[in-house]
């Protein structure tokens, strides 16, 4: 679900190749229903010493944006966390008609700083925990370097293949917010829908068994939970979202972010201390906001190719400033 290459306007409403008629729910195995698999991942990573967090309460385009990853990647302390993060990619909406593409989907995110010596083994253990047996499957680490121009972040690693399918992104972060990571964190990102479709053996995301309960007993599929959401938000993202408002909100978030940081700086200078005075966390909220607003504008097709780079650059400047402020609070602590 991360493959989001088509966002041209001509692939909107007309994008109906296979209409998704609600099917009777097929219970594969209650152990492999969506909610059980999530619990298993959480349980596995909790046992590896991760803090199990809940999703951040704002719209983000990827689990990386969660402050538990972006900000916590910086600073000298150890940090291990795992969480599910709903992600919004407005341009990927397909009105609930495409079996593989969603504008709202889930990532499971693991961050471990410093990266453990047995990172790969730990990761493979998580696949085993959700029933991907390495004696039957072909698991591979295929080069894929990761970069987020909006976060000013990059790292080296792989996409992990299971029988030819990308099931996770595996990255050793090198830089975040333009700042060198020291120690280096390991970031794991699982695209849950695609992974679970594979585990359950279904071809259509809306057919995923959510709860392992038969339909006649009130059991729900992914479609039952999210189909209407996809239809409505596709309409909103592509057709209704007011671009004037979005542009204004973007400017507001940008200004607010700067204002918060400036206020914090003044206080830190006055009190001679970064922590408790600098305000990277509330400022970073505004950065996330600006990023999502940009994604919405992009989906509405009102940002030209050249402008696009400029907007990404503006979000990156916010992210950098927030990361720098955060880093100061962490280094001081150390």
């Amino acid at each position: 679900m991360t493959n989001s290459n088509m966002s041209q306007s001509d692939t909107k409403k007309s994008d109906v190749t296979k209409s998704v008629a609600p099917k009777t729910k097929v219970i594969v195995d209650p152990e492999r229903c969506v909610q059980r698999l999530i619990l298993k991942l959480q349980d596995y990573w909790a046992r590896q010493g991760c803090v199990i967090l809940q999703p951040y309460d704002m719209e983000v385009g990827a689990g990386t944006f969660h402050p538990a990853t972006t900000l916590r990647s910086l600073g000298p302390d150890t940090w291990r966390a795992a969480y599910v993060q709903p992600c919004r990619r407005p341009a990927d909406g397909r009105y609930g008609d495409n079996p593989n593409r969603l504008q709202h989907y889930y990532q499971f995110q693991v961050i471990m700083k410093p990266s453990p010596a047995n990172s790969q083994e730990l990761y493979l253990g998580s696949l085993d925990a959700i029933g991907i047996d390495s004696s039957k499957h072909d698991l591979r680490f295929v080069e894929d370097d990761w970069e987020s121009p909006t976060l000013g972040a990059w790292g080296l690693g792989w996409e992990v293949w299971c029988d030819g399918m990308e099931v996770s992104q595996f990255t050793y972060f090198q830089q975040v917010g333009g700042i060198e990571c020291n120690p280096v964190p390991l970031e794991l990102t699982y695209g849950l829908e695609r992974l679970f479709m594979y585990v359950q053996g279904v071809e259509n995301v809306y057919d995923l068994d959510w709860d392992g309960v038969p339909a006649e007993e009130g059991g729900k599929t992914y479609g039952d939970v999210f189909h209407q959401n996809e239809v409505e938000f596709s309409t909103f993202n592509f057709e209704i979202a007011s671009t004037d408002e979005l542009f204004r909100h973007f400017e507001d978030a940008e200004a607010e972010c700067a204002r918060i940081l400036k206020f914090g700086e003044a206080n830190a200078e006055k009190n001679g201390k970064a922590k408790g005075n600098l305000l990277p966390l509330p400022a970073y909220d505004q950065c996330m906001k600006a990023s999502h607003l940009f994604n919405l504008l992009d989906a509405r097709g009102v940002i030209s190719v050249t402008e696009r780079q400029a907007y990404i650059g503006r979000v990156r400047e916010l992210a950098k400033a927030c990361c720098e402020a955060w880093n100061k609070t962490q280094l001081e602590e150390a």
Partner: peptide
């Protein structure tokens, strides 16, 4: 298992391609 997995992955790749072709 590996073959059927790869066939499924390919099918999903190719349905994208088929979609572009039709579109």
């Amino acid at each position: 298992t590996i073959i059927s997995g790869n066939e499924r992955v390919l099918a999903s790749r190719l349905s994208d391609a088929e979609f572009f072709w039709d579109q």
